[in-house]
């Protein structure tokens, strides 16, 4: 349980920092790429708000003494916000790559898959890090259900 809460806290704090950077990038109107991570582009300000608030919700969930159903729900909700953001970016990248331009109607598969190559927006990387958190929430739900069955 302690490791889980440490993970939520670390993840939440990271999201707050990265969201803050995206906000700053959006306000200043610049874009930055560091390794496989790229910060910038259209709607970066909104992505920054979403990432930072998701980080805030994760951190809030950690503050409860014993994670109740409400805290678990907050973790799922915050993860959902990241899934929506990342899913939208991935979907947009693929749809933009499909029309083949002036000569062909549909681009070759290589060009379409090429749209999925790095650099990635922070939300796309954060989505992978939500999986352990979601798995934990799901795990607790399964344990609760087993307890109910045993008790009955």
């Amino acid at each position: 349980m302690r490791i889980t809460r440490l993970y939520w806290a670390f993840f939440g704090a990271s999201l707050l920092v990265v969201g803050g950077i995206e906000l700053a990038v959006g306000i200043l109107g610049v874009s930055r790429a560091v390794g496989p991570v790229s910060i910038g582009g259209t709607y970066v300000l909104w992505r920054g708000i979403i990432l930072a608030t998701a980080g805030g919700l994760y951190t809030h969930a950690v503050l409860a003494d014993v994670p109740s159903i409400r805290e678990r729900a907050i973790v799922v909700l915050a993860s959902g916000m990241l899934w929506i953001t990342a899913g939208t970016q991935l979907f947009t990248a693929v749809l933009e790559a499909i029309p083949g331009g002036a000569e062909t109607w549909i681009a070759p598969p290589g060009a379409i898959f090429g749209a999925l190559a790095p650099p990635y927006a922070p939300a796309l990387i954060a989505v992978l890090l939500t999986l352990p958190a979601i798995r934990h929430v799901d795990g607790i739900a399964v344990i609760d259900r087993l307890r109910e069955v045993v008790a009955s």
Partner: peptide, 9 residues
Amino acid sequence: PFAIAVLYG
């Protein structure tokens, strides 16, 4: 915050 994410999506 969730509504902002939904509207963004």
